[in-house]
Nucleic acid binder design. Structure first.
Lengths: 189, 189
DNA sequence: GATGGAAGCGGAGGATCCTCCGCTACGTTC
DNA sequence: GAACGTAGCGGAGGATCCTCCGCTTCCATC
């Protein structure tokens, strides 16, 4: 229940939150190597303490900053299913997901924690990802191409593992192919 | 060529290196949550600068500290092959590898970098891991149970990804099973 | 529109990481 | 065994992370 709101945020707090998010999105999209949280707070015109109150960890900030874009990625799943056979839709979506993580520097590390912990109250993106992936898998199962005994959460974790560990894009692709083979409905040869 | 030695280390430098390694092994095996490099240097009785000179990154220190144990793991591969069919030997070895990473707190993170970069001069453990894994895969290929078109490096990266991303041991096991299915020689059903 | 209490703010400060450079002492050469 | 060039040492210090707590500002209530 991440959405319990015992009290609506005070007006100034809400304003600061918005400013922080705006600054974070900007800072994260800049090509520069790393962003210090102090810099984001400064840019947003608030104290560092305020940043940490709203976003207790770097991951929380990253998750919130990318929630929109990540949502778009999830929305793409039904579209893919409309135009492709389920297994190819699944493969395509996973590829996009990896692409997405690769472009966002520092995102993968943050997302590891987001994805890993179901208990994380800041992980509402996780639910959306799970839903999108679950839909793709279910379509494959219905079509008889994908095994029925695989958990979407496991696949999601596997994806984040690939994005974390893979060095170059080509390697990630090979690992995705391997994963797809494992997911396929087949009998031993 | 990680083993080029333009000059044999000076006596005092060698002594310091040994002390650092000893302190690091001890510190890493203590149950405590995290170890500061400063503490290791202090315990070894050398300056922090000396630590960083010998081991420029935390990963380098971790890798060196665990090189022995990791070696034993690699040595176990031939034994497994003697007693089990190749695919089960492979599965067993991968399981042990994950176990090993799980017990060593902070090891997985360090090993990610060690495994990821083939160019890392401190990654001589990587070569041993590759050799052990390659042998297991080759045996499976020879027995006709494992596909011939999979690179050992890719599998190694996949393993480190699993250990990085998987939350609980049971999940890691499920992901290993999935990986095994991908590795098996089979025809689509 | 005054007021009290709590929500929220901000930044000083402790902890850690890592670099840099003046000093020390090793070992080589004669 | 003296002396000298340099490999190696140490730790101060700058950068970042994150916490903690005294001060400020909002807003519910009257």
């Amino acid at each position: 229940m991440p959405e319990t709101s015992p009290r609506p945020l005070r007006a100034d707090a809400l304003r600061n939150r918005e400013r922080l998010l705006e600054a974070a999105v900007q800072a994260f999209s800049r090509p520069g190597p790393e962003v210090t949280l102090d810099a984001i707070a400064r840019e947003a015109g608030v104290g560092i303490g305020t940043l940490y109150r709203h976003f207790p960890t770097r991951e929380a900030l990253v998750e919130a900053a990318y929630r929109n874009e990540l949502g778009k990625l999830c929305d793409a799943a039904p579209d893919l299913l409309d135009h492709l056979p389920p297994d190819r839709a699944l493969r395509g979506w996973m590829s996009r997901f990896i692409d997405y993580l690769a472009t966002k520097r520092g995102m993968a590390d943050a997302l590891r924690l987001v994805i890993a912990s179901g208990a994380n109250p800041y992980a509402q993106s996780r639910d959306r990802l799970l839903e999108a992936l679950g839909r793709l898998l279910a379509a494959g199962v219905a079509a008889g191409t994908i095994r029925a005994d695989v958990d979407a959460g496991d696949v999601l974790v596997n994806l984040s593992g690939i994005s974390l560990a893979a060095g170059e894009r080509a390697q990630a692709d090979r690992l995705l192919d391997l994963l797809m083979d494992g997911l396929r409905h087949h009998r031993a040869g």
